[in-house]
């Protein structure tokens, strides 16, 4: 009798804990979502009068109602493409080496430790490195390619770590199956491991790119400009980027520029959403091709 009572009491308690935990989790998801909606909504309402095709296709101007983000938007877009082209092969290559080829030992551990540490280095340090290495030593100048190379360095640790995580999700049994069928290491990598980890790798890369698009400090350090009235047309072209343009408008005295800044923020957020959306879409699409 008493045993049955005790059991029912613990059960009731469990239900209570369960509910409380659920509420906490709900709060944890609701808070950031609310914050995002409030931020985006606020910017959208302020930006509404300026948002339009004209804003996307105009050059910066001293009159707030004529100013647009074309050079900054193009600069950011080219930066992302170039950064991805540099960071993906290097990052994926490094991850493959560490996961598939490197023999475990103190050197490998040291390299791994350093990569995790690099991921936590403030972005302005990468800017200083980029200024010295790319702008001055390699004399690339204050150009688009120097900016992209700096951002690629910044992303590299994150890309390597995300790719390694993805590589680890491929079960060992599948590699063994491939070897059992006579596949060598290269064939196993190309036919089994890479296709299976690709969704994870791509998601990691696109998410870190979405972070990089909001970076300002390293770009300003390597000499990204503020007023550029042309779309960059070569790797050595001077450039500006969205966050720099937004920052400039925010700090102007005239209220009209603050509206431009809000509109710039909306454009930047939409670009980020687009990139994150692409990540999700790619993952879904690639996952469909995988059978266990």
């Amino acid at each position: 009798m008493t045993a049955a009572l005790a059991r029912s009491l613990t059960e009731r308690q469990d239900v209570g804990t369960e509910r409380a935990f659920r509420a906490i989790c709900l709060l944890a998801i609701a808070l950031p979502l609310l914050l995002l909606v409030a931020l985006f909504g606020g910017a959208l309402i302020e930006a509404w009068p300026r948002l339009g095709w004209g804003f996307l296709t105009s050059y910066p101007s001293r009159s707030p109602e004529l100013a647009g983000v074309l050079p900054a938007l193009a600069g950011s877009a080219f930066l992302m493409v170039l950064t991805a082209l540099m960071a993906i092969p290097l990052g994926l290559g490094a991850a493959l080496y560490l996961e598939e080829y490197a023999r475990p030992g103190w050197i490998t551990s040291l390299v791994e430790l350093n990569i995790s540490n690099l991921a936590g280095v403030p972005s302005i340090i990468y800017g200083l490195l980029g200024l010295e290495l790319f702008v001055r030593v390699l004399s690339l100048g204050r150009s688009l390619v120097a900016g992209a190379a700096t951002l690629a360095l910044l992303l590299l640790p994150m890309v390597i770590m995300a790719s390694r995580e993805a590589l680890r999700t491929v079960p060992r049994s599948l590699r063994e199956a491939s070897w059992a069928l006579g596949g060598d290491r290269w064939q196993t990598l190309r036919r089994v491991v890479l296709p299976m980890c690709l969704p994870g790798v791509l998601t990691g890369i696109i998410l870190s790119l979405a972070r990089a698009i909001g970076e300002t400090a390293p770009l300003i350090t390597i000499g990204a400009l503020t007023y550029v009235a042309f779309v960059p047309d070569s790797l050595s072209s001077p450039f500006t980027a969205l966050p720099i343009q937004i920052f400039n408008w925010v700090s102007r005295p005239q209220a009209g520029f603050h509206v431009d800044a809000a509109a710039g923020i909306v454009v930047l957020l939409l670009l980020m959403l687009l990139m994150n959306g692409t990540a999700i879409w790619l993952r879904k699409r690639l996952q469909r091709r995988i059978y266990w």
Partner: peptide
């Protein structure tokens, strides 16, 4: 910056082949 930006904006209308860049 705002003064140089304004001058650069007007200058580019008259001299299309010249590109003026302004940093902060």
């Amino acid at each position: 910056f705002p003064i140089t930006e304004a001058v650069a904006e007007e200058f580019q209308k008259t001299a299309q082949s010249v590109r003026v860049t302004v940093g902060i």
